[in-house]
Design a protein around this nucleic acid. Structure first.
Lengths: 350, 350
DNA sequence: GTGAAAGCGCTAACAA
DNA sequence: TTGTTAGCGCTTTCAC
C-alpha cells in the first residue's frame, strides 16, 4: 500500500547501475558483492548491500544466464502429473532445488513420445542446466537430443554413455521380495501380478523382479495371472476383472503401482470380495493416499524424497562441473515393504 | 547416435550469426524471419529457414527476454500440489500455455505466507510475464509485491485495483444450491457442512453459500454441524469424528472439497455407517478420483479446464497489451452438481 | 581491491 | 526489403 504510492509510473525496476550509483561504486563491485566474491572490501560491500536493500534490487536472471551460460534452471519431466506419485516427487524436487538456488521447469510427457520431444526442446530453449527424466522407461526418444547439447541428464533405470549423465537405480528387489515373502509366510501360494505398461522399462523390471521372487520362494508362476495394466486406477479395475474371469484364481495380487492396487480394491469391493479376508492386495509406491484406502494398503514404499534428492544431486554435480569427466554416478534408491491392512492369510479352501 | 558422431566438442550450439552466415543474410533478417515479420521476401525467408533447419538452430530465450522485456513465462502458484485438484489444474494450464508458446513456472505455497512471498520473489527474478495466484484466498501477502512491479496478475475470488489484474469469480452458488436442493428433495433436513480452513476466502464463501442455500430451502442451520476442517483427507476424518460426537446428528454432510468428503467416506465406513443409506455425502471439486470412491462421490464440479483457461486468457490479455488500461476482466467459472452414488434419502427414523 | 570495457544472443530503431 | 548498430543487464577479463 505504502509501496504503491511510492511507485510512480516512470521509475522502473532498478538495475545494477542504479545500485552502483547509489552505493558510489562501479557495477563490477556490485556484481562481485552479490556473487560473494571474497575480494571486495567490507566497507564497500556494506554500502552495496545497503543500496540493494534500499532499492529493493534483485538481479535479472536472464542477463545473468546470458553472460554466464548458466540458468540455474533444472527441468524435470515426469510421466503423468495426474498420478499422485509424481506431484509428491515434484514437490520434493522443487523444495530441494529452491533451497539450493535453482528453479524448476516441470513437464509431463503423458506417455506420448511427441510430447516428450517437445518438452525437451522447450527445456533446451530455456537453457536448463540439466534435466531429470523421471518417466521410468520411455526416455529413448529424447536422449539423443539432450546429449547432443551436452546438457546434464539424470535418468531412472537407464544408463547413458554420456559423461554428463547419471542414473538412478531403483532397488525393486528388496521391496518386491519382501512382499512375496510376506505373502508366502502368511500362507499364500497363488499370487497374481498386475503389471504396468510393458513399454515402460520399469514395468518390465518390476514384473521380472516379481517372477524372480516367486522362484526364490519356490512358488508357482502362472502366466495367466500376470496381466499387463496401465498404472491407472481404471486399469487396475479392468485388470482385476480379467483375473476374475479366469477359472483358477489367485488369493493375492501384487500390483505394479498403488493406483492399480486401488483399482483392485475397488473392483474387489464391488464384487463382494472382502480385502484382506478373501483377497490380499499389495501396491507399489506408497503414495500418501495409500494410508487412507479401505483397508489401508499394504505396499512397497518407493521414497519420493530419496528419488528427488538423488536426481537433484546428480544434476547439480554435472551442472556445477561442466566438462569434467568421471562424474557419472549411480544412485540407488531402495524400496521396502509397508505392511498395512490389505494383506492377511488366504481364505481356507472350502 | 549418428548425431553423436557429428558433434565434436569444439562446435557450440549455433547462434543467430551462424544462421545468418549460412543463409548469407544479416542477423536482422534472420530475426525477422523467425518472428514472422511480413517484410522479409519469400526468397530470403526460405534460405533462412533452410539454414535454421540445417543447423538445428533455436533462439536463446534469455537473450530474447533481455532485449524484448518479455519472457513468455507465466507463473502459477497453487496452494498445495499434493491435493489432486491442483495437478489437474496445472496440467490444463500447462497445455494451454505451451500451445500458445508460453512456458510455466509452478510453485505451491503450502499455505505458508513466507513460502508464498518467496515464490513471488523468484518469479519476479525470472521476469515472468504474469502470475496466476490460485491459492483461493491467501494471496494478500504478495499482492503488493506483484503490483509494485506492474506484473499482470490473475486471482481467484479477489479483486485488485491494479489495471493489470483480473479476477476469476467462482460461481459456487449454482452448485451448492443444487446440492442442498438435491438433498432437500430426497428428504434431508439435517445437513452438516465440513468447511475449509477459515483463513481461505474461498472456504468462507463456500460456507456462506451453504448457509444461504439452507435458508432458501427453509432448512434449519445448526451451527454445531458446521465444522472447520483443513481441506485434507485426514481433516475430513477428524471433522466427521467431531460431528459424530454431537448428540443430534445430520443425515447428510456437504464438504468444502472432495478430499474432505473422501475423509468422511472413510470415517463413516470405519464406524459402520453405510453411505448413502445411513449418511449422504457431497464433495466439491470433482477431482478425477471422485468417480472411483466407494460409493462414487456425489460432488459439486468445479472445472479445472475452465479455471485454467480463464487464468491463461486473463494473463495473456494483460501480458500482450502492456500498460493498456481498461483490460481488467472478471471471468466466471461455474459449478454444477454431479450426482453419483453417495447420496440417497435419509434413513427412516426408528 | 577496484573500475573500465568487452561481450553473452538477441530485437528494434534507423539507414540505406 | 535489407543491413547496421545500439543496447537489454549482467559477468568477467584486464588494467590500474
Amino acid at each position: 500500500m505504502a509501496r504503491k504510492a511510492t511507485r510512480k509510473g516512470a521509475d522502473k525496476t532498478p538495475d545494477i547501475r542504479a545500485v552502483a550509483a547509489l552505493a558510489k561504486v562501479s557495477i563490477a563491485t556490485v556484481s562481485r558483492t552479490i556473487n560473494g566474491s571474497p575480494v571486495v572490501s567490507e566497507k564497500l560491500a556494506k554500502r552495496v548491500w545497503q543500496a540493494i536493500e534500499q532499492l529493493n534490487y534483485f538481479p535479472n536472471t536472464h542477463a545473468r544466464t546470458l553472460v554466464s551460460g548458466r540458468s540455474r534452471l533444472f527441468g524435470i519431466i515426469v510421466e503423468n502429473i495426474t498420478n499422485p506419485f509424481f506431484p509428491e516427487l515434484i514437490q520434493s524436487f522443487e523444495e530441494i532445488a529452491v533451497a539450493n538456488g535453482y528453479e524448476i521447469l516441470v513437464s509431463s510427457s503423458n506417455s506420448d513420445p511427441a510430447v516428450l520431444t517437445n518438452c525437451v526442446r522447450r527445456m533446451l530453449e530455456r537453457k536448463v542446466d540439466g534435466v531429470a527424466v523421471l518417466t521410468f522407461g520411455e526416455e529413448e526418444p529424447v536422449l539423443d537430443q539432450l546429449s547432443f547439447h551436452d546438457i546434464p541428464v539424470v535418468l531412472a533405470e537407464f544408463r547413458l554413455a554420456e559423461p554428463a549423465s547419471s542414473t538412478i537405480l531403483l532397488d525393486y528387489s528388496t521391496g518386491i521380495r519382501s512382499a512375496v515373502h510376506h505373502l508366502a509366510t502368511i500362507g499364500h501360494s497363488k499370487i497374481g501380478f498386475l503389471a504396468g505398461p510393458h513399454k515402460l522399462h520399469s514395468a518390465i523390471t518390476r514384473q521380472t523382479e516379481f517372477e524372480n521372487s516367486m522362484r526364490s520362494e519356490k512358488l508357482p508362476i502362472d502366466k495367466n495371472w500376470i496381466i499387463e495394466c496401465d498404472h491407472t486406477l481404471k486399469g487396475g479395475v479392468i485388470g482385476f476383472g480379467k483375473l476374475q474371469s479366469l477359472v483358477g484364481q489367485p488369493t493375492a495380487v501384487i500390483c505394479s503401482n498403488d493406483m492399480t492396487a486401488i483399482g483392485v480394491l475397488r473392483a474387489a469391493y464391488l464384487q463382494g470380495l472382502r480385502v484382506p479376508q478373501d483377497l490380499s492386495v499389495i501396491g507399489l509406491d506408497d503414495i500418501d493416499f495409500a494410508e487412507f484406502t479401505l483397508p489401508p494398503l499394504t505396499t512397497i514404499r518407493l521414497s519420493r524424497a530419496d528419488l528427488a534428492r538423488a536426481a537433484f544431486e546428480a544434476l547439480r554435480l554435472h551442472a556445477e562441473n561442466p566438462g569434467k569427466s568421471g562424474l557419472q554416478r549411480e544412485f540407488l534408491v531402495s524400496t521396502n515393504l509397508v505392511v498395512r491392512g490389505s494383506t492377511a492369510p488366504p481364505p481356507l479352501p472350502n
